[in-house]
Write a protein that binds this DNA or RNA. Structure first.
Lengths: 339, 339
DNA sequence: CTGAAAGCGCTTACAG
DNA sequence: CTGAAAGCGCTTACAG
């Protein structure tokens, strides 16, 4: 037996299955992909052959021939952020049983990387795309149009009529926590954020609007840094804020990691929270409720975002229009003991 | 112009590039994949054509024709566990610049799921595989042998001569922390664990060996539950341990999430840590050092594991033998204030 | 250094 | 309900 090229361990192909089932290659193909269009007898023979030979379809061949795939590309900024992990887990829970596989790309909050991933994944002819946020260069936004794959955006909301999305208003969430703090009587409310991705900046804008509206906005009370968020950074930001603006009586941190760090530091400094200084976070990570004092924060529904976005994508991939193009899952201000 | 089948937006193919560059299809192919074998002039014309047309290679076609791909399959048990996130991030940091893309599969600590993912990913003809742990059914272990893709195992160590791996001895780590606790004078050291994956059980065995060796082993001091680890569960396990065995003076938790929960609960109960009860964890997550009291734990080098494993896989995918087949990155017992 | 041809493993109209 | 043929976009020996 002379094979011109050695296949890795003589892969079992659909034509082996067909031969073993005593039918044509394409009947075998049909028996697997459109079983309804085939006689019961044939279907059974093919299924047995598949089992007997241990046949596994070749995704690349299928994708090349059909210009479709069972791949869903998911692009997120970070895996270190529990928010995106929860979202991805939820996505997987709905996509996997439906027979899809995920390609997860992590952009590390870098726009160029986000766009590179988008292009690279599109080349794989994914059946669908799940991407984070709308901010993207015009060129990058134009790319998906050349492909037929449906796309649902996570985390943010859009007014454009041709967008599909599941998220919540980051700006409104920023407004809501700031207002709550002001209503509780805090006068000098600082805002501290790291990373500075679009959603962070939207929340910052919300903070600004609420402060302006209350006539209490002071630009110097905003502390923004491009560094990556971490517990340690939260502690550091608290130090800086306290040194520069001893008059502050509350800090709204852009996420719980930072707020946790600030809470730890406050404890080290013997600072009374919330007596001397109130501290609030964003996301409601598991540790938030366990801290002493328990952290006040904004609860985000990232599991729901992942689940609903994946379901919407599933509809689109099946050629159905979802009931809503953009779903607002909302958020919830959760005041505990720290503010 | 009659196209028999409508391609999605008339994809630009390599033959478009060849036509535009005024050369044959296969010279174009060579100019891209083996540029050294081609004249400078040709290479430049092809490169220009690629740029002008915005050509993007079709991964499925390439993979089908060459029976190779730029996909590396990574299978981990969980993304909620920061340990695996750190590992995956490190893997991505070395694989991405080398031109590979990752398919991440999450098994949720379910052996069937782990094996299903292994088979599914293998069908994609990945260039390489990175999997977690060795425990796998014989059938599943046999599968990769049919494929040529090299495979490196994460987290554990192996004695078998044909395994590639990067990890550390989970058993030794369990022994080390238990011994340290005993040396510090704790007499009734309990062990609490959730999830019960192979690595957890190896650590439990380490605990058992150390306790037996010290003549202090009591089976009832082991609290094992198949539930998923979480801060809340840690608090719960502490309650149960305290109720059933008031005599315990130390608890070694299988991971930091559980230990953190126990620390929070101890604070709520007004329990003196480590005076009345010592608490130790495993992994050294970022929050561990910030707790009050700071958590004693076992530091694991998961970033290093990911990095070295990816580098080893890179060598193997290039056909080179790595210097070592199994790398032991070790671990470090970090005693802080909680024990 | 360059090219014509075959082939990777599958699916898709089109006939029967 | 079933089959013969063409084609998806690329790479790989083999010639020249």
């Amino acid at each position: 037996m002379t094979t011109r090229r050695r296949r890795s361990a003589e892969r079992i192909t659909l034509s082996d299955v067909a031969r073993s089932a005593g039918c044509s290659l394409m009947s075998a193909s049909r028996a697997l992909s459109q079983p309804d269009l085939v006689s019961d007898a044939l279907r059974e023979r093919v299924e047995q052959a598949v089992k007997a030979l241990g046949y596994v379809p070749h995704p690349a061949a299928r994708s090349l021939a059909s210009s479709r795939s069972n791949l869903v590309a998911v692009i997120i900024p970070s895996l270190s952020n529990a928010v995106f992990v929860d979202t991805v887990e939820a996505i997987q829970r709905v996509l996997m049983p439906a027979g899809y596989e995920m390609m997860i790309g992590v952009s590390h909050y870098r726009p160029e990387e986000d766009e590179r991933l988008l292009r690279a994944y599109l080349a794989h002819q994914p059946a669908g795309l799940l991407i984070t946020g709308f901010e993207r260069s015009d060129a990058a936004r134009a790319v998906p149009a050349n492909y037929t794959a449906p796309m649902v955006t996570l985390m943010e909301l859009s007014e454009r009529p041709d967008d599909y999305c599941v998220g919540f208003s980051q700006l409104e969430a920023g407004v809501a926590m700031t207002r709550t703090l002001l209503e509780r009587g805090y006068r000098h409310v600082a805002f501290a954020a790291a990373q500075l991705d679009p959603r962070t900046l939207q929340r910052a804008e919300g903070y600004r609007q609420a402060m302006r509206q209350a006539g209490r906005y002071e630009p110097t009370l905003e502390l923004l840094t491009p560094q990556l968020s971490s517990i340690g950074l939260g502690a550091e930001l608290l130090d800086r804020l306290l040194a520069q603006h001893p008059q502050i009586d509350a800090v709204f941190f852009n996420n719980d990691d930072l707020a946790l760090g600030a809470l730890f530091r406050a404890h080290q400094l013997g600072l009374d929270v919330p007596g001397r200084l109130a501290i609030a976070g964003f996301n409601d990570l598991p540790a938030a409720a366990w801290m002493h004092p328990a952290l006040s924060t904004v609860r985000t529904r990232r599991g729901e975002i992942g689940e609903l976005a994946a379901q919407m994508l599933l509809s689109l991939m099946r050629g159905q229009q979802p009931a809503e193009r953009c779903i607002d899952v909302g958020f919830e201000v959760v005041m505990r003991d720290s503010a």
